[in-house]
Write a protein that binds this DNA or RNA. Structure first.
Lengths: 344, 344
DNA sequence: TTGTAGGCGTTATCAT
DNA sequence: ATGATAACGCCTACAA
């Protein structure tokens, strides 16, 4: 066989073994910090590895151990701020602990079901963080059967630990804030126009909104609920629609800050003043919200990622004390300058 | 040895071979679409694999082929919009082509040099996209020796293909826009306060700024250059500093939209009007900029990711026609409502 | 404490 | 067109 003349061949464990004068078994143990290796032996081996610039081939290692040391993060749409934030933080935590992390976005042509199936059978993951995506029994079984440790964010199941906030209560807080300012014509810019998966989050938020209306004997007007698809643009368009109805709203509760910011633009473009003519409240507390003065519901997005990652790490570490099942974090109202008293 | 009772053991190629009645060799060929497999044979095998829900173990495959089918994306700071956008798009393109993608952020405690070294020796990557990070000769050699295909974004080297825009020209355009509006006291909110790596981008932009000042016989005032660290907050703080000097600027050119938006807040908080009292122009054309009405320099951020990924893919595919070396994309001025005529 | 050797699931070479 | 079989680089009983 033709030798590649040693070009670029990175060293293997055998070379470290040879150079250090120990067997590959001992080298393997030494390098991974396992017990039952004499200190002096370990020193020698570490030095040899260092000199050779050796590093364990993760794929070979995986094959031998059965652990992939990689985890996935599944989000509906990476380029929404919320998902991006959660996944980025989780990614940081996990990779700091030696895991490779792969992000999966449902946007990819294939449907969520296909994607889940593919992920489950791909043999490349030890664990998976699922953000916001509702799971049915079949999904749960699929994942369990694949032997995947999973943690969910902003969606709760009986099967897996989760982190979330109480969207219903948070939405009530938001709506109440508007009611307290004297508003009665309160609209919402809700979720997806087309929502086959029936995301629970916008539904919960709408429930909270409705409940507060009811508490205050305000009748719900269907034309005051228009979807904004969780994007700037969608929010802007939703707002034009809301402003076109007679007796248009004096206040708007958008289910994400991006939509709220889109709405702000529409309002200003029409020459209306905020908050004198119309109030706007968002949801999330996007990084930029502080800078555009948006009143919003702050939810601990970074913590979602952080905590989800931590839970996953402990599950992967085999810690049975799953004292983190279904953790619920608090959301809170942050009043800035886009909400004010209802016009007389 | 104790059998695990077959619990959750996903099928191997041997089982597919057995079930289909062919050898593993043929199964392997059939599954990967290689030639020299009878159509009927392939059908049988595909069907068998389907029924078993079989899928190739990527790690075993990697070990055998030497190709990892994973690429990395290295950015200085994932949570800046620019880096995030570039990496997200590139990630989408690459994973659509069957690659796993791993993101590396230099933020991680270890320095860039360590990170590069670690990436190079980790044996887990076929290729790497390096965003914005300057590379010296040693870095280049390190990467080449590791047999990594690399493509750079917004940084050019002699060694690797790249995508970028002409920052100097773009900065001239921005500055000229302000000059044309009659401004003479023009400040910049530049890059990092502490910049050991000497990022070339802010330097190029500053060069463009200086050149236009000079063209117009405007003297550069050092107190008109304050770093904003490419963050909202940094921009806001830089702005307070700029407004504290006597004869404060009537226009500000921020080297990123995030900093510009931070600056806007400071200005408004102080009761000054935009653009009547002070004009602000940014750089990037952040997703939100359209909605806050920020005048800015648009650069094709998504295309950076897209093109970088495509180039990398063709390099990995062994296409020698590297007709994509050092591609330069156009940036352009987008005038919105934060810039206007200089106050009388 | 250390070493021997078989196995992890694929791929690729070389026959047939 | 197929099939045996030796790698690929590491890990881990088991033995010493």
């Amino acid at each position: 066989m033709i030798q590649m003349l040693g070009v670029n061949m990175s060293p293997t464990i055998d070379e470290v073994a040879e150079r250090s004068g120990f067997s590959t078994a001992t080298v393997s143990r030494a390098l991974r910090g396992l017990p039952n290796v004499a200190p002096s032996t370990r020193d020698h081996i570490l030095r040899a590895a260092e000199q050779l610039n050796y590093s364990i081939d993760p794929h070979a290692s995986r094959l031998a151990t059965g652990r992939t040391m990689t985890v996935g993060i599944l989000v509906p749409l990476v380029d929404q701020w919320f998902y991006n934030k959660v996944s980025t933080i989780a990614e940081a935590v996990l990779s700091a602990h030696g895991y490779d992390v792969l992000r999966y976005s449902i946007t990819g042509s294939e449907s969520r079901a296909q994607l889940l199936r593919q992920i489950a059978t791909s043999k490349r993951l030890d664990g998976l963080i699922i953000v916001t995506t509702p799971l049915d029994r079949d999904d749960e079984r699929l994942l369990s059967d694949a032997n995947l440790s999973v943690v969910t964010v902003e969606t709760v199941t009986a099967a897996f630990p989760s982190v979330a906030c109480d969207n219903l209560t948070a939405a009530m807080t938001a709506t109440r804030h508007l009611v307290n300012l004297g508003h009665e014509r309160i609209a919402i810019i809700s979720g997806l126009a087309d929502d086959p998966m029936r995301f629970p989050i916008p539904r919960d938020r709408k429930k909270g909104y409705l409940r507060v209306l009811q508490e205050n004997d305000i009748e719900f007007r269907p034309e005051f609920d228009v979807p904004g698809n969780f994007s700037y643009e969608g929010g802007a368009e939703a707002m034009t629609q809301l402003l076109s109805v007679r007796q248009s709203p004096t206040a708007v509760f958008a289910f994400s800050d991006e939509m709220a910011i889109g709405a702000l633009k529409t309002i200003r473009d029409l020459g209306l003043r905020i908050p004198q003519d119309i109030s706007v409240i968002g949801f999330d507390d996007h990084d930029v919200s502080k800078y555009v003065g948006l009143t919003t519901i702050h939810q601990p997005v970074a913590q979602y990622g952080d905590i989800a990652a931590s839970i996953l790490l402990s599950v992967l570490a085999g810690e049975t004390g799953d004292g983190g099942f279904n953790r619920e974090l608090p959301a809170r109202l942050v009043i800035r300058s886009t909400t004010g008293a209802a016009p007389a």
